[in-house]
């Protein structure tokens, strides 16, 4: 028996919005410790790694490990049926071929039950090596989304260069070029408005804008985003999901031909 309850169904809606651009289907691996998902996009350029800890749920029970393959378009259809203020409960029996979603309004005046067929998906979990990143940048997630959107107008790819002075985003193409520099913030009232750079060595890497823009669909989940970079390895873009967990995106760099 598996059962996971979230008082705020909006969190699950946002998680789904954050992954469905990159993935059409994915397996949710449920265990005693929580729900995990790891999947690459079709082109094997980016990877989504979602971790929702069991203790972050309002109720969580998982007697036996369970892998639930879901079509994310269909899951989105069902989650759209939940009101923003509804509580959501996901349930599945052991070895089930369906997952149930129950939405309850405040005061339980309205209770909706949906069942979705599960799929058997080929799972290939990649081994992601432990990496000490040369640069870690923490910045407001809305600022990052804005920069990715703005620079996408100039070219298909953008360079991210980090030194201890700051982080520079740049792009160039037919219409011209763009450069955005962000300095580390000296004093900020709100922690989520800060730009913080931890640098061991300067790094400059180039990435496809299209994927970065897809990652920014996670912006509503967190006020801050963390970018981790080292020379010649994939970028990690991480959004915390409150006390529940995190979503991490890995993106392979563009390399010299």
């Amino acid at each position: 028996m598996f059962e996971a309850r979230l008082v705020q169904s909006a969190i699950l809606k946002k998680v789904l919005e954050a992954i469905k651009d990159l993935l059409t289907e994915a397996t949710f691996d449920c265990s005693d410790s929580g729900i995990q998902l790891q999947a690459m996009d079709n082109a094997h350029v980016s990877l989504v790694s979602l971790n929702l800890r069991s203790d972050g749920f309002d109720k969580y029970r998982c007697d036996r490990n369970l892998s639930m393959g879901m079509n994310l378009g269909n899951m989105t259809k069902i989650m759209k049926c939940a009101g923003a203020e509804d509580t959501v409960t996901m349930k599945a029996q052991d070895n089930a071929d369906v997952v149930a979603f129950m939405f309850e309004s405040k005061n339980q005046e309205k209770v909706s039950d949906y069942e979705m067929k599960l799929m058997n998906l080929d799972q290939e979990h990649l081994g992601i090596p432990e990496t000490d990143y040369s640069c870690i940048v923490k910045m407001p997630s809305q600022e990052f989304a804005r920069i990715c959107r703005d620079l996408s107008q100039f070219g298909e790819s953008m360079a991210i260069s980090c030194t201890k002075e700051g982080v520079k985003f740049s792009s160039a193409g037919d219409i011209g070029s763009a450069n955005i520099k962000l300095a580390q913030t000296a004093n900020v009232d709100a922690e989520e408005e800060a730009v913080v750079i931890e640098m061991q060595e300067p790094v400059s890497l180039t990435f496809a804008c299209r994927y970065l823009n897809s990652f920014t669909k996670a912006t509503p989940l967190s006020a801050q985003v963390q970018l981790s970079m080292s020379a010649d390895v994939p970028l990690v873009v991480e959004y915390k999901i409150g006390e529940l967990g995190h979503i991490r995106y890995y993106l392979a760099p563009k390399i010299e031909d």
Binding site: L126, G127, I128, S157, A252, E256
Partner: peptide, 14 residues
């Protein structure tokens, strides 16, 4: 010119 690398160049297959 740069080409897009694959994640499979960096991460181990199971």
């Amino acid at each position: 010119n740069r080409k897009q690398a694959s994640l499979l160049n960096f991460f181990k297959k199971p």
